[in-house]
Computed example of a mutant assay.
Amino acid sequence: MPRTEMTVGELIDQLSTFDPNTPVHLAMNPFFPMEHRLEQVVQATDVTGRAVVYLAEGRDADTQFGHLPPEVAVLLAWQGPVQAPPRRPRRTAGGK
């Protein structure tokens, strides 16, 4: 099944359901999920001559917030919910 690219119209439709004063962050790299501040939106032409809109992070050192919260990675289906391992019974001082 071929992947389709999100269009500006689809992005606007999805964003229109949120409070317009809500900050926008980028979730990057599903294998090492990080969170970035969105700073710029620009339009350019790609190598095929199509117009493309790019969402870009900033240049400042604090533009990357750090690891993406686990619950967001789960919502994006980048990772599954993590369960704590079962607890083992504690050993007594006698080693039994």
Results as ranks from 00 to 15, higher is better:
Q14D: 10
R90D: 14
V82P: 02
L38Y: 00
Q79A: 00
W78F: 10
L26Q: 07
P23S: 00
T63E: 07
S16Y: 07
G58V: 01
F18R: 06
E10Y: 04
V82A: 04
K96R: 13
T92H: 12
R59N: 04
M1Q: 13
P86G: 01
R88S: 11
T22M: 08
Q64I: 14
T7D: 15
V74I: 14
V82S: 02
P69A: 11
L26E: 07
R37L: 11
L15T: 03
L68C: 10
P85G: 05
Q83I: 10
L68E: 09
G9R: 09
A77L: 10
P85W: 11
V72S: 04
A61M: 09
V47H: 11
L76D: 10
G49M: 01
K96A: 15
R88Q: 13
G66D: 03
K96P: 07
T63D: 05
R50G: 06
T22L: 08
P70W: 07
R37A: 02
H67C: 06
D60G: 12
V52E: 07
M1R: 09
G80E: 01
D46C: 07
Q79P: 00
E35C: 12
H67I: 08
N29T: 12
Q40L: 08
M6H: 04
L68R: 03
V41H: 01
Q64Y: 14
A61Y: 13
V47G: 08
R88P: 01
P20G: 13
V82F: 02
N21H: 09
T92A: 13
P33K: 04
P86C: 01
L26W: 10
R59Q: 05
S16R: 04
L68V: 12
D13L: 05
H25W: 15
G95F: 09
V24H: 01
P89L: 15
T63K: 02
P20R: 13
F31G: 10
E39H: 07
F18A: 09
D13T: 05
H25K: 07
T7G: 12
D62I: 06
T22P: 01
R87K: 08
E71S: 07
P81V: 03
V41D: 03
M1V: 15
